[in-house]
């Protein structure tokens, strides 16, 4: 079973700065990690490959530094990595990103399954996974919370929806996006790290994936960032301190009174 796992390198903290001119993130000086929600996709891929054999290829589009994220995924157990890096990809929205990733997946050859994280913690769109499915014209199951069965021509999965779990059978090859219930990510091992360091990591540009230049980067992106604001959410609330029993008593009494006032007690 050959599995492709598209991942994204994201800034670790939420304290990131934006460039007010371009409306893009200032990435310099930030500690970068694998998008935490991609770890569940990586783990599920490794588990499947351990059971069924084949390969797990992590794929990331980003600056050269994104190779770190790929090496880390390989240290967890992914067998191969591909870095998509080219200035022509810069400024891509989810439309152009999913196009480039889909082209790279095509170029890489036969595969049975693409597993994506639910969304990246920086962009927070959750659009690239389904986008890849659309470009590759593959069936997709989103919000997958459990892999039930790996059948010869299909996968049976559970999908988390608002009021429960759907059980779906999805024909292979297919695309899954997974939520955090789907797997318990392992830590990289020392042996894995050594192996990851030694494994060749190809770097592909726009030409290598036979991409239409008009569909790449900012130029290929239908959306434009118009402006960026920093939101403020503040209310002038009544904040009490319950430092001693008397204060505690009074604060809780007033809380009950508050609940009464809004007809909840």
């Amino acid at each position: 079973m050959n599995i492709i796992i598209p991942i994204k390198q994201v800034p670790e903290t939420s304290n990131v700065k934006m460039d007010p001119e371009t409306g893009t993130m200032i990435r310099e000086g930030l500690v970068s990690i694998i998008n935490p929600l991609d770890l569940f996709a990586i783990e599920l891929g490794i588990v499947l490959q351990e059971e069924a054999g084949g390969s797990t290829t992590v794929l990331s589009m980003g600056p050269p530094k994104a190779a770190e994220a790929l090496r880390e995924a390989m240290a967890m157990g992914c067998t191969d990595g591909i870095l998509l890096s080219d200035r022509k990809f810069a400024g891509s929205d989810t439309w152009a990103t999913s196009y480039a990733l889909a082209q790279a997946i095509r170029k890489n050859g036969d595969f049975d399954l693409v597993i994506c994280g639910e969304r990246a913690t920086d962009g927070d769109t959750g659009q690239v996974g389904p986008g890849i499915a659309a470009w590759l014209d593959l069936p997709v199951a989103t919000y997958v919370s459990r892999l039930v069965e790996n059948r010869p021509g299909s996968l049976v999965v559970e999908r988390l929806v608002e009021d429960g779990y759907e059980t779906l059978e999805v024909e292979k090859p297919c695309v899954l996006t997974v939520v955090k219930e789907a797997a318990y990510p392992r830590l990289p091992t020392l042996r894995g790290k050594q192996r990851a360091r030694k494994t060749e990591l190809p770097v592909w540009g726009a030409v290598d994936i036979d991409a239409d230049p008009a569909a790449l980067g900012l130029k290929g992106s239908p959306t434009r960032v118009v402006k960026i604001n920093t939101p403020k959410v503040t209310r002038s609330g009544d904040i009490r301190t319950a430092g001693d029993p008397a204060e505690l008593e009074a604060a809780v009494d007033d809380l009950v009174a508050y609940l009464e006032k809004i007809d909840l007690v």
């Binding site: 959750g126 986008g131 659309a134 239908p222």
Partner: peptide, 18 residues
Amino acid sequence: RTLMPLLAITCHAGLTAD
């Protein structure tokens, strides 16, 4: 959140989430 990204690619349209 599943349908709209699929449709946006199909229609070559811009899509903004959430």
